[in-house]
Structures are given as structure tokens and as C-alpha cells.
């Protein structure tokens, strides 16, 4: 029972990180009609930014600002590439998938050649924090608390933006019907750029929380997380925001349970077996594509 509770807490805090990434990923898919596979890699790059800033200051606000700014700026800087591709090929998500995979490779290469000589980076131990609660096997670290509660706050803010604000309405309109949106005068390009910006904001926040949760990062982390994000999105039904919420958490919990009860190194295999089975039963994902 204790193992179960401990792994549930682990799973939920890890899962809430997947949720944030799935939301950012899906937002760009829905609004800009791209698969941005390099998005998790960008987030890992922002973890490197956090790490670099932390060498000079331990001011949390500065770290968050640097992380968010880097993720937004790079994500928006990539946007014209996808716009150009769309002009050439039409809005073809397969093209964007292939192109963003090469971007992901590039980012991974930059991290493994140019940053910290390719070695994994470690965050200061007080950054991860001691356990703030422990009883027997159950321990809840400050990092986990940041990830879980920060994650919840960010998800709430995201859905508030999307469903309660004027800009959110416009994002949803374009996601439902971009042609009709342009006919009624909604600026398509500007709003697409906004979706990259919002995804960048979510990504920058996630980078800080991931740093606190994991305590380290390595060049390979982007691929690792990237596959999980794509998996959770497909499990939910591509572009399905609410489904992504459930599946992100589910994936995090399943992974933690595997670590708790089975040999930890099998956790990935289990996650992908799960995906295979669900895809065989429900090819459109658990919640259907884009609901």
C-alpha cells in the first residue's frame, strides 16, 4: 500500500509534466496545424538555460523568466519555417512532423556537443529540495510538490485562457475552422504565432518544474520525453485537449507503477505496450480526435 501511494504521488507529479507538454503540443497542432516534435527538446534546452542561470544567481524569479523567455523566443523563431513549408506544401502535418524531427535532432546535437561538454547537467541539491513529507516508504519532495501543484496551476490557467478569454476564443475558432475564421476577419497568422507563444510559455514553466522534479537533464532527455508526449497525445486522440489531460497523467502513473512494482527499466516498454493495445482497440484514441 505504501509503495502504491508513493508511486501514485510520483506518477502524478511526473504525469502533470507530461500533461503540460501534451497541451502545448496539441495547441500548436490544433491552431497552427503542425506536429512540433521538437517541442519537448526545446523544453529540455530551456532546462539548460535554467541550469546556466543558476550558476550566477539562485533567484527563482530570474530563473523562471529566463526559462520562459528562451522557450517562447525559440519557439516563435521556428514559426516562419513552418509557415513557409505550409505555403509550399499546403498544411500537411506529415511534412511538419518530418521537419520537426530534424529540428529535434539538431537541438539534441547542440546539447550533446556544445553544452557542458555533452555531459548531463545536475541542478543544485537544494533546488530539488528535501522531502517535505515522509512516512515509511512514502516521501514527497519539494520538487515533486512544485511539479504537481505548479502543474495543476498551469493547467487551470491554460484552460482559463482558452475558454474564458477573447484570445482563447480566437484560438479555438481557428482550431475548429480556419477558413471560416479568416472569412470573419480573424487574423490567422497572428493567432498562429500566438499559439506558438502560449506553447512556449507552458514549455518554459515546465522546464523549471522538470528541473526541480528530476534534478538533472541530459541531451537525450528530449527524445525520451518527446516520445512520451507524442504517445500520450495519440493515446488521447490527437488534438484532444481534455483527453491529453487524462492520458498525460495516466502515462505518468503507469510509468511510476512499473518502476515501483517491476524492474524500473521496463517502464518505457510498458508505456508503449499500453499504447499499442489501446491503438488496436480504439485507433482514434481513447477520447477521439479533436473533441
Amino acid at each position: 500500500m505504501e509503495i502504491f501511494v508513493a508511486q501514485l504521488l510520483n506518477g502524478l507529479s511526473l504525469g502533470s509534466m507530461y500533461v503540460l507538454l501534451v497541451l502545448g503540443f496539441n495547441l500548436m497542432l490544433l491552431v497552427a496545424k503542425i506536429i512540433q516534435f521538437a517541442y519537448p527538446h526545446l523544453v529540455v534546452l530551456s532546462m539548460y538555460v535554467c541550469w546556466a542561470v543558476l550558476r550566477y544567481t539562485d533567484n527563482m524569479l530570474l530563473v523562471v523568466l529566463a526559462s520562459v523567455a528562451s522557450c517562447i523566443v525559440i519557439n516563435i523563431a521556428i514559426e516562419p519555417i513552418f509557415r513557409l513549408l505550409a505555403k509550399r506544401h499546403g498544411l500537411d502535418i506529415n511534412v511538419s512532423f518530418v521537419v520537426s524531427m530534424s529540428m529535434a535532432l539538431l537541438i539534441t546535437d547542440v546539447m550533446s556537443h556544445l553544452l557542458n561538454y555533452g555531459y548531463p547537467i545536475a541542478f543544485p541539491s537544494d533546488w530539488v529540495g528535501k522531502s517535505i513529507f515522509s512516512s515509511g516508504l512514502i516521501a514527497f519532495s519539494a520538487g515533486q510538490a512544485y511539479a504537481l501543484f505548479g502543474g495543476i496551476a498551469a493547467v487551470v490557467a491554460f484552460f482559463y485562457l482558452l475558454y474564458r478569454t477573447r484570445q482563447g476564443r480566437v484560438l479555438r475558432a481557428i482550431s475548429e475552422n480556419s477558413l471560416l475564421s479568416s472569412i470573419i476577419g480573424i487574423p490567422i497568422v497572428k493567432t498562429r504565432v500566438l499559439s506558438y507563444g502560449v506553447a512556449g510559455l507552458l514549455g518554459g514553466l515546465t522546464a523549471v518544474m522538470l528541473a526541480r522534479l528530476l534534478g538533472s537533464a541530459s541531451p537525450g532527455l528530449g527524445d525520451f520525453v518527446g516520445m512520451k508526449v507524442v504517445a500520450a497525445s495519440i493515446l488521447a486522440g490527437l488534438g484532444n485537449l481534455k483527453g491529453g489531460l487524462v492520458c498525460g497523467l495516466l502515462l505518468g502513473v503507469a510509468e511510476s507503477m512499473a518502476i515501483g512494482y517491476l524492474a524500473g527499466s521496463w517502464s518505457n516498454a510498458i508505456a508503449f505496450m499500453m499504447m499499442l493495445i489501446i491503438m488496436l482497440i480504439k485507433p482514434e484514441g481513447l477520447f477521439g480526435i479533436r473533441a
Binding site: R172, E176, N177, L180, S182, I184, P187, I188
Partner: peptide, 24 residues
């Protein structure tokens, strides 16, 4: 000119087939 700019300048099209944002 791009459609959204033309629309913004005061041209309102009511498209064929009663199109609405159906999920909203």
C-alpha cells in the same frame, strides 16, 4: 490581400451552407 484583412476592412461574407463554429 489576405482574407482576414479584406474582411476587416468591411466586407462581410455570409458563406454558403450556414457555416457556424459548431463546437462553440
Amino acid at each position: 490581400k489576405s482574407t482576414d484583412r479584406v474582411a476587416k476592412s468591411g466586407l462581410g461574407l455570409i458563406p454558403e451552407g450556414h457555416l457556424v463554429f459548431s463546437t462553440m
